[in-house]
């Protein structure tokens, strides 16, 4: 991972430097309804820089909807979302990505017909500056940039443990590798905040262990802030600094893992069931 110097989070943007100590991401009274169904109800959230922050809650609690609002897929009906102090609510996804937020999906959403390397290169799209005419005329600038991008992409693949698999089509990779590739692609955006939607879903204990290690490394070595949705309590309790619990779209508890584990409301709404299982 040491070689991946080029993918460090970008320096904080104008004006944000002064607030470095404030939350990286802040949700203020955010709500989303679909028809009559309330998916997310007036949720407040503050994510401190450099932390791993987990979102937990039963299915349908509104976790993924919150992710979708943060990343610009949905526009919140109410409330605001601030990233490094600036509102990102209602921005289109590509603008959100440009600000420095990237994500993975609950169901892996890779570009299946592209190779692993190409998937990562698409993630780097924002950072490639050659325009259409450079490309058509094939200027040296394009050549140099493309070469650099490929090297960087290979380093990222290596960083998530997919070294040497760059030329495989994404659809031909085994499931666990696909999840890792998705993380590599998200890293290629050079985010300051990484949103991971159930990164350990469908993995065996050994793979889960490796994913935890990977996430932990991302935080420690790249200084990334990570917002995590996860059902596997071992993962959540093992790597989170803060845990937020959603139920029926509302926040019902928040705190360090140990406190959450003991919170009676959480036990009733969520952990109780998990424990029974």
């Amino acid at each position: 991972m040491s070689a991946a110097g080029g993918t460090a989070p970008r320096p904080a943007q104008e004006g944000a430097a002064g607030r470095a100590a404030g939350p990286v991401l802040e949700a203020r009274g955010v709500s989303k309804r679909f028809g009559g169904l309330v998916a997310v109800e007036r949720v407040d959230l503050a994510i401190a820089p450099g932390t791993v922050h987990s979102l937990i809650g039963p299915n349908g609690a509104g976790k993924t909807t919150l992710f979708n609002m943060i990343t610009g897929i949905y526009r919140p009906d109410e409330g605001d979302i601030l990233f490094r102090g600036r509102s990102v609510a209602g921005l289109p996804p590509e603008k959100v990505a440009e600000r420095g937020i990237s994500r993975t999906f609950q169901n892996v959403r890779l570009f299946k017909e592209l190779t692993a390397l190409e998937n990562v290169l698409v993630g780097m799209h924002l950072h490639l500056r050659a325009n259409f005419f450079d490309v058509v005329l094939h200027t040296p600038r394009v050549e140099a940039e493309e070469r650099r991008a490929r090297r960087e992409a290979r380093e990222l693949l290596a960083a998530v443990g997919l070294g040497g698999l760059g030329d495989e089509l994404a659809k031909n990779l085994p499931y666990g590798h696909q999840r890792r590739l998705e993380i590599a692609r998200a890293l290629a955006v050079r985010p300051a905040l990484l949103l991971l939607d159930e990164p350990a879903a469908g993995m065996n204990p050994r793979e889960t262990e490796a994913v935890m290690e990977l996430i932990d490394g991302l935080r420690r070595e790249r200084g990334l802030t990570i917002l995590l949705i996860e059902h596997d309590m071992k993962v959540v309790m093992g790597i989170s600094d803060v845990v937020t619990v959603l139920d029926h779209g509302a926040k019902i508890a928040e705190g360090p893992p140990d406190a959450i584990r003991r919170d009676p409301r959480v036990i009733e709404a969520y952990l109780g069931k998990a424990v029974e299982r």
Binding site: T71, G72, I73, P92, P93, E94, V96, A97, E98, S102, R103, F105, R109, L110, F111, K112, E113, L114, E118, L121, V122, G123, H125, L126, L128, A130, F132, V135, V142, E146, A149, R185, A188, V189
Partner: peptide, 21 residues
């Protein structure tokens, strides 16, 4: 090219492509 890659990505999944910037 980068543009061609982006084109193929958009063809497969425009939302995910947008999320990559």
């Amino acid at each position: 090219t980068r543009a061609g890659r982006a084109m193929r990505a958009v063809a497969e999944d425009p939302v995910t492509a947008a999320l990559q910037g």
